[in-house]
Design a protein around this nucleic acid. Sequence first.
DNA 1: CGTATAGTTGATACCAGTCAAGCTTTGTGG
DNA 2: CCACAAAGCTTGACTGGTATCAACTATACG
Lengths: 251, 251
Amino acid sequence: MDSRIIRPVAERDTAACGYNPSIRCGDCRLSGICLPLALETGDIDQLDNIIQRGRPLQRNAHLYREGDAFKAVYAVRSGALKAYRTTDAGREQVTGFYLPGEILGLDGIADERHGSSAVALETSAICEIPFEALEKLSIAMPRLQRHFLQLMSREISDDQQLITLLGKNTAAQRVIALLLSLSSRNARQHLSATRIRLPMSRTDIGNYLGLTVETVSRTLTRLQRDGLLRVDSREVELLDATALAELVNDG
Amino acid sequence: MDSRIIRPVAERDTAACGYNPSIRCGDCRLSGICLPLALETGDIDQLDNIIQRGRPLQRNAHLYREGDAFKAVYAVRSGALKAYRTTDAGREQVTGFYLPGEILGLDGIADERHGSSAVALETSAICEIPFEALEKLSIAMPRLQRHFLQLMSREISDDQQLITLLGKNTAAQRVIALLLSLSSRNARQHLSATRIRLPMSRTDIGNYLGLTVETVSRTLTRLQRDGLLRVDSREVELLDATALAELVNDG
DNA sequence: CGTATAGTTGATACCAGTCAAGCTTTGTGG
DNA sequence: CCACAAAGCTTGACTGGTATCAACTATACG
């Protein structure tokens, strides 16, 4: 076999995740849902100038760790990450999954130290947005300031949604809520709302929803048996989204 | 009886909750933990000018409701409030308790509509901070902008803390975690760290911690029986804070 | 091909929920 | 000031959903 056709690992992954370091915010297909939303064309260029586009993050590589000095927030361009905290007892609580177009790292502003760790679930392309530069730019661009505040407020709402979910819901309701969330986020990226690829393991799902792996597995099996969805390892097809939504909402 | 010595209700309550509408941020004893933190003296005056100090909020009166148009964030000057969401199934999930010096309403910025309701647990004095004015002032005062972002980030951290708590902890761990949180917030107000007055009902505690009233009650009884604390209706005395902290941390 | 990791399935145990009853405190109108 | 109602809180008996422990299968990887 000619070794020349085997590309180096880095390059291969770069291609696989659609990574292109030269792309600018104005051209990014995610600009409609990411930070530049609602900015004028000229403004976008300025934002563009402060954004760092590093090497793609390999699976299992950390973007930052709990306790790290906070210097930037991050936008996911491709791939997927999870954010998690480790309790004193050693348990891992996943606080969120981040998909293309979403911003993470917002919990580090308060005490200039990340309050959670973030790790890539698969090879991911990330835009790094240095916080100081963003702050300064916000002063000159009120629309950017507003939009950033809205992103933070959205994170608060999402967290409160999860709090509500963890408060009293059954295993099935939790699992379904996650699937429906992933579905609508898929749709926002103009992907299928019924066919979902789970970038995270069953264990991650459990650590997010406050369930054990076994319960997650059993729950998916049961939902499949009941004809509400079809599971094939990490591929899920929602067969009856209406019925699923009702299950989440009804006590 | 001379009717002149009977003051009107509003005035009586005003006195009871220490309400004084003429006080300014610079003179407020909470300025160290509230929004003006880290502002210069001149800056505080400017912030002061945009803040509205309305009538005190009576017990059970709503500050805002889920779905209301978002116009302002609120600082608690005295009293206590709870924020909650009502699920489609009719269940009430309390998302936070707010004590003097704390800011609430931050989840409404994202879609300009409050994502939760806020209600007074007892007569409370509230500072209303109109959001548009705060935004404009932030542009002129970078330290204010920074501080406000930190407040939002703090809310995110707190919510994630609660997520972690609700994820897998036992009833006792949840209850203790709340008591310790109230204790440290008491201390921040230079009040006792061991003697706590609970402004909320057992039901509220349950709806916050994802437990039933019965479980909250039983848990407090057991902790008292074990000599870790003393409960007298809504007064709690922490007898062994070290042991309590260990119980929360250990799996 | 062997090992490690991820996922599934089954049997059992236990913590918190549910239902029910009674007690305590608070508030209100006679 | 008392009587009563309503709300808040506590306690007990029982139930049930999820965790735990364990074994097994499937998949990925060097």
